[in-house]
Nucleic acid binder design. Sequence first.
DNA 1: CAGCAGGGGGCGA
DNA 2: CGCCCCCTGCTGG
Length: 465
Amino acid sequence: MADGMLSLSWNNHRATFCHILATLREKERYTDVTVACEGKFYPVHKLVLSTCSEYFEKIFENTPCKHPVIVLKDVNRCDLEALFCYMYEGAVSVAQSNLGRLIKAAEVLRIKGLAVPDEPPISDRRTASSHHHHSSDDRSSPHPKRRRREENSHSHQGRSQSSPSPPSSPRPSPLHDGGDSHPAQRSRSDSQWGDHGATDREDGGMDGVADDRLGDHSTTSHSAPTPPQVEVMVDETLVKEEMIDQGDTGQEDMMDSGMDYGSVGSDSRLEGSAGGGGEEDHMLPGKYEPKANPSQQAIPEAVVEALAGPSGMQTWLGGGEMPSGFSGLEGYTGSEGGQDLHPPSQAPAAHQLVGAEGGNEASLYPLPGHTTTSTTTTTTSSKTHRCPYCSYVTIKTTNLVRHIHTHTGEKPFACPHCPFRATQEDNLKRHVRTHTGEKPYSCTLCPYRSRQQGSLKRHVWAHHN
DNA sequence: CAGCAGGGGGCGA
DNA sequence: CGCCCCCTGCTGG
């Protein structure tokens, strides 16, 4: 092995890389996410944001669309630009007076290297209480550059770190979504979503026109540490996540709890899913409801990682690609649909079955052991279509396509009134009625009306039986 | 018990 | 293929 091996190194790789990255951003080339802040829009790259912030990474993980729009509220535009500069170039110049605010923003967004507590110069990074980074940071982030310690200590290290302690005081609960934990319920308060297009409120962060007004507003609001909010809009006005700053200690706690999931108190769920049942907390609905608590996201992720290995599921979820970690897919399938498409014990057999059945087909595919077939070619016999992800079989290709959406997470039908997306057009129509108030199904025996036929049926059965 | 969403089968154009 | 209908599960009052 050592014989004849040459080490080829690109001397200017890092500099060139950074330069090209910055150029690409300048030209808005390959940008695949837009960050909106104070009415301005910043086309950037998921890759960069994910690299520099697990916070963004998680957002993208849970936002399986090609070009999401992230609306940052209560983050100063200048700070954001500085942070972008920092992320793309690895350094940024900032006025000392603005440093505290910038650090604060960096903490909110968990920018690696900036949002770290001011510790003594550590050669060994302790995962002590004050360390807010994941231990996984150490491996995932190649260069966790920290702000020079002098700078932080210059500008009140306590300020940037301990200033959030006041936020622990009761605040007007911007975490209002904590109450309505179900997207279904959210839809009743669709006034939140109702006016994405014409936002005349100040909190309509998407309003790119009200630039100045918002700018003034936020600059004033930044003097006081207000809970920053983040909205994630998928495609146009589809998915919205609001996240708030929990304060430093809160963040650290969350990060900690996100690490050792066992202590979150949701270990029962974890056990349940890890136990092979494949039944997990519903993931997809969670994606469409604002979850301010990253620890809650960390749990499914942990399950995913436990089952499929790091990032395998994300790849699968986002691009519909088949990861090699097929077992993880099983678990996720169960968690996603809630309704098992197959008996859990039967599933693995089913995969093998497909491989065995379509032996000639399987040889065409890169992973003969697993059935990574394209959707259209998975026919076992003459007319049946088999799902490459599970044991589902149907004679209709449309059924298969529709079914595969449950695996890929693709939801082609977007509600015009809210971020809800549906896998089936019919389901969307049904959902839209929750906005329009239409109740087409009326009971013939009483004044009861319902939006869903099934509801009426259930009503009749219960009352007029 | 009602509202809502996920997912699948059936039927007709 | 598109639409309709159905069953089912989850959630909150």
